[in-house]
Computed example of a mutant assay.
Amino acid sequence: MVSGLEELQRNLVKLQLNNKKAAKRAVNRVSELVSDNLRSNTPYDANASDNLRDDIKTTGITGSAKGEISKDIGFGKKTGWRFHFPEFGTTKQAPQGFAQRTINQSQSEALAIYEEELRKGNQL
Results as ranks from 00 to 15, higher is better:
M1Q: 13
G4T: 00
L5P: 07
V13N: 13
L15M: 10
L15G: 11
Q16F: 09
N18H: 01
K21M: 05
A26G: 00
R29M: 11
R29S: 00
S31E: 00
S31R: 11
L33G: 06
L33E: 01
S35L: 13
D36F: 08
L38E: 03
L38M: 09
R39G: 07
R39N: 12
S40I: 15
T42Q: 02
D45H: 10
A46M: 02
N47H: 09
A48C: 09
A48R: 10
A48Y: 09
S49G: 05
D50L: 13
N51E: 13
L52I: 01
L52T: 04
T59K: 11
G60Y: 04
T62P: 06
S64C: 07
A65R: 11
K66T: 10
S70W: 06
S70E: 12
D72W: 00
D72P: 01
I73F: 05
G74A: 00
F75C: 08
K77R: 05
K77V: 11
K78N: 08
T79N: 00
G80S: 03
G80Y: 03
G80K: 00
H84L: 03
H84Q: 02
P86V: 07
G89S: 09
T90H: 11
T91A: 02
K92N: 10
A94L: 10
P95S: 14
F98P: 00
F98S: 06
Q100W: 04
R101E: 08
N104G: 06
Q105V: 10
S106V: 05
E109V: 05
L111C: 14
E117M: 03
L118G: 05
R119K: 15
R119D: 15
G121C: 09
N122C: 11
